[in-house]
């Protein structure tokens, strides 16, 4: 009798502990000097990518129109609350659209130019610039309605072991955040700082670039940048950090 009464109480204990731990930005796991680098509005190395994106934002496209013509020279007419909600469900296309894809679609529809490559530097620069505008806004990804299936698909990917190393995102980033691996502190793998400047690579990475880098370390065959799998994973990863302030461009190891 005692044994059976004990089990549900134990489970409840685990559930409460997990909830109490809460979501934490990767920023909280950084060394003080790395935090200072991110906070420095002149020294943050990710800001070069923001500047690159701003220049593209202001440059006229094939039909003579620039993003800035509709959205303001510095993007001031963009809704920062809307930026924090990406990926969002697109009723017309019947699938989630990431911020980077929204920018690509907007460019090919409104500027009549060739589509930007999803994996190209220009799309990454524009995404970094636009998300930077929403710095401080809490991440607010919708996971109900038509997004539920994509959130669930992303959750499943997050829990699937990959590659020869045979580890899922979940094992490190849910179970071992705060512990150490190869001299680094494992974080929860939150995405609120993305696109972020990585000290390890010296480059800015968005969600899909970061997923690829992780899968490569697991000796797995990564999905393609812009693939439906990575879009679902981005839905889950961003929603997992709902409420965290956007830090773009974050500085991370």
């Amino acid at each position: 009798m005692m044994r059976w009464r004990f089990i549900p109480l134990t489970l409840l204990g685990i559930a409460l502990t997990a909830g109490a731990a809460g979501v934490r930005s990767g920023y909280e796991y950084l060394l003080p000097e790395t935090r200072a680098l991110q906070d420095d509005d002149f020294g943050n190395p990710g800001l070069a990518m923001v500047d690159e994106g701003r220049a593209l934002f202001q440059r006229a496209g094939a039909n003579g129109k620039a993003c800035a013509d509709c959205h303001g020279t510095g993007g001031e007419r963009l809704d920062v609350h809307a930026i924090a909600r990406y990926p969002v469900f697109d009723q017309e296309r019947k699938r989630p659209i990431t911020l980077r894809e929204r920018i690509r679609l907007c460019r090919s529809e409104k500027q009549a130019g060739p589509a930007l490559s999803y994996a190209g530097r220009k799309a990454l620069a524009l995404e970094t610039f636009v998300r930077h505008l929403a710095r401080g806004q809490p991440v607010a990804v919708e996971i109900g309605g038509p997004m539920a299936a994509h959130y669930e698909a992303g959750r499943k990917l997050f829990h699937t072991r990959w590659g020869q190393v045979d580890i899922a995102c979940h094992q490190c980033h849910d179970n071992h955040a705060g512990q150490h691996f190869r001299g680094q502190t494992l974080t929860q793998g939150q995405t609120n700082g993305l696109p972020a400047y990585r000290l390890a690579t010296g480059e800015v990475a968005g969600a899909h670039e970061r997923f690829r880098q992780c899968m490569h370390k697991l000796r797995a065959e990564p999905f393609a940048i812009g693939s439906p799998e990575f879009i679902d994973l981005e839905v889950y990863a961003n929603a997992r950090g709902n409420g965290l302030p956007i830090e773009t461009p974050g500085v991370r190891y």
């Binding site: 699937t160 072991r161 990959w162 590659g163 020869q164 190393v165 045979d166 899968m215 490569h216 000796r219 797995a220 065959e221 990564p222």
Partner: peptide, 15 residues
């Protein structure tokens, strides 16, 4: 057989 999407250079090999 229990591994998923092992990258080409490592496929079919144990760690």
């Amino acid at each position: 057989e229990r591994l998923h999407r092992v990258g080409k250079p490592w496929r079919g090999r144990p760690f």
